[in-house]
């Protein structure tokens, strides 16, 4: 190839590199700037002093408590559910698959409205619970129910995929060796999918922690009872702005830690297909 042939090619190459770099920078900045801005709207002193504020502490505690309950419920019920679902064929399975995934695309406010109309004091089920003096809406239980509804697909989808993709040779070998279904499930299936399950659980926890729309519809925004961290950030706009910023920064830090944990487990997730 001669020198005149090289030049336009090199130019094209340079333009391509510059274009790619600009795009990379643009996307990164777009995603990073709003997060970084939060840190510039406060000072370390202000942040640290707000950390001790009772509203901050109660929101932090409530968020961690409800998200932990949510993830426990989702893992304890979702794991066996995903296992039976992935291993069986039944009429309407496709419909169930769709319903499981629906909360992923359903606007959370719609989910919250649905929950309210079902479990609220005058709701379809709520009115009967009310007869026994049981109230769900606008309680901490409502916070958890909203989180479970919105966040469970993250775990169940992952668990389903893992159980479907797992090489059947492991479980079948265990069967030929005389192991009971429970021994196989607990001793083979769960350990072989553990990393993937944990990364699914981490994502579910993160989604529960960030839940806002369904919670505010179904549980309201009562400090100490239903005001989780995202709701307290929202409340900060009308009340104490500093508290809102402090909680927002806490959420950024938590999200970052969760993402690191997710990457750690996702990386170790060995495909045994």
């Amino acid at each position: 190839m001669n020198a005149t042939g090289m030049r336009p090619e090199r130019l094209r190459h340079t333009i391509a590199i510059a274009g790619a770099a600009a795009l990379l920078l643009l996307v990164t900045l777009y995603l990073a700037l709003p997060v970084v801005t939060l840190f510039f709207r406060t000072t370390p002193d202000l942040f640290l002093s707000s950390l001790g504020d009772p509203d901050v502490l109660s929101a932090l505690w409530l968020s961690l408590f409800t998200s932990t309950v949510t993830i426990s419920v989702v893992v304890l019920l979702g794991t066996p559910f995903a296992f039976f679902h992935s291993r069986s064929r039944y009429p309407g399975k496709v419909l169930v698959d769709t319903l499981i995934d629906l909360p992923l695309v359903l606007p959370p406010a719609v989910a919250g409205l649905g929950l309210l109309l079902l479990y609220g004091r005058t709701g379809l089920i709520g009115r009967y619970l009310d007869l026994f003096g049981i109230t769900i809406a606008f309680t901490t239980l409502a916070v958890i129910m909203a989180q479970v509804f919105v966040a469970s697909p993250f775990y169940i989808r992952q668990a389903k995929a893992l159980f479907e993709q797992m090489d059947p040779a492991y479980e079948q070998t265990a069967r030929t060796l005389g192991a009971s279904p429970l021994r196989i499930f607990l001793g083979i299936t769960i350990p072989l999918t553990a990393n993937g399950l944990v990364s699914g659980a981490v994502m579910t926890f993160a989604r529960a922690l960030g839940e806002f729309g369904a919670t505010i519809m179904f549980a309201g925004n009562l400090p100490g009872v239903t005001q989780t961290m995202p709701l307290a950030v929202y409340g900060g706009l009308e009340g104490n702005f500093n508290i809102g910023i402090t909680i927002a920064i806490l959420l950024v830090i938590l999200s970052f830690a969760i993402m690191m944990a997710f990457r750690f487990f996702a990386r170790r997730e060995v495909s045994r297909a």
Partner: peptide, 10 residues
Amino acid sequence: YVFQNPAVFP
């Protein structure tokens, strides 16, 4: 019975 994939429990 040993499968083609020896499927040792890793």
